[in-house]
Amino acid sequence: MGLENVLAESLPEILTTQLDSLINWARKSSLWPATFGLACCAIEMMNATSGRNDLARFGSEVFRASPRQADVMIVSGRVSRKMAPVLRRIYDQMPEPKWVISMGACATSGGVFDNYAIVQAWTKLFQSMCTFPAAPRDRKC
């Protein structure tokens, strides 16, 4: 209503939107992942950037080694007890807004490694989460 409509009529070459949606659109189209390659899943994460799976389709091919430049952390592989504090620390270094993808069954629930060394469901350590519990069996990792 109002200003939007007037603008749309008189200046059709200008698109109007809400700032929030604009920012969200920009964010969505170029999510920069922070690598957190841990185990076998990391190889498949690397594979996701290569020719066949082409992560660049989603604007996410820019893997940042520094958490300060990344939006989403991909935790790919099993998180050991020695690694968990490091993981938390790197998560804390990421700027807001931030997301975490837990890739693979191991990262999500411990997978086959139900033992003393692996943190079962480290996802409990975080609030904002998005998990993909599946081992990379097929072309989708």
């Binding site: 968990a84 504090p85 938390r88 139900d114 003393y116 060394a117 350590l125």
Partner: peptide
């Protein structure tokens, strides 16, 4: 950890 009397899941669950 690999001693036979060490439990498979460790002594206590992990927390940060």
């Amino acid at each position: 950890a690999l001693r036979k009397d060490f439990p498979l899941r460790g002594y206590e669950p992990y927390s940060l």
